[in-house]
Computed example of a mutant assay.
Amino acid sequence: MGNSSVKGIKMIESIYPSEDGSSVFDKMPKLKAKLDREYAKGTIKFTETEEEPIDGDLDAVIDSAIKEVWCTYDPKGTGLMDKKAAEKFFKDALQVYAIRQGGKTEKDAIPKGVNSSDAMKQSIAILNKKGTGRTSQQEFEDFVRTYDIEEALGHFLGKTDGVVIDFTKAVFIDVSQFHTKQADIKPVYRDYPDD
């Protein structure tokens, strides 16, 4: 299983669920047994729900999952994720990605020719946009909301040619506020989430 933790893998699955709804734990019985032991010890709390939100909006569920994942990588509650914890986050995400692709360890996900050390530095630089060496909870939430698992791991996967959009500088206008006969049109800006 490499350097990944069962709890980290479970948390990564909560923010980056598979498209078909399957779990990496279903594909690896030994990993599932470790997960069951962690549940029994109380190291991982079972928080999944069978109920779909009434309005069909999963934002509250996603917010809860992101906060839970944050607590995994900031266990002392400092509000900051250091470089070591950020590396752990990416290794756990690589582990999940590798298993979904039929591999067993995070190294199975990294194609030949990709320098994993450089990829880690580049990925952490994207996660920690301020370059302080410690990622804030807001930076982490923005990262998770902006990138799906393949985009988050792009430097490791050799897929870095995507378009990066900085939604913090994007402005959206509510065009329903415009009237055809209105002379002084004043746009009304809405606050859209970054997802």
Rank of each mutant, 00 (worst) to 15 (best):
N3M: 14
S4M: 09
S5W: 09
V6G: 02
K10D: 04
M11D: 00
E13Q: 13
I15E: 04
P17M: 12
P17S: 10
D20V: 01
F25G: 02
D26Q: 15
P29L: 14
L35C: 05
D36G: 00
Y39I: 08
A40E: 13
G42M: 05
G42Q: 03
T49K: 14
T49R: 13
E52L: 15
I54E: 12
I54Q: 07
D57S: 07
D59N: 12
D63S: 12
A65I: 02
I66F: 06
E68F: 09
W70Q: 01
T72I: 08
P75I: 06
K84N: 04
K88G: 07
F90Q: 03
F90Y: 15
F90H: 00
L94V: 01
Y97N: 06
A98H: 04
R100T: 04
G103S: 02
G103Y: 07
T105N: 10
V114I: 15
S116C: 07
S117M: 11
D118A: 15
K121D: 15
L127D: 00
N128F: 12
T132D: 08
G133Y: 13
R134I: 08
Q138T: 04
E139I: 05
F140T: 05
E141Q: 07
R145T: 01
A152R: 00
L153P: 03
H155C: 08
T160S: 13
G162L: 13
G162S: 08
A170S: 04
V171T: 10
V175T: 10
F178T: 02
T180P: 01
P187T: 06
P187I: 11
Y192N: 06
P193L: 12
D194G: 05
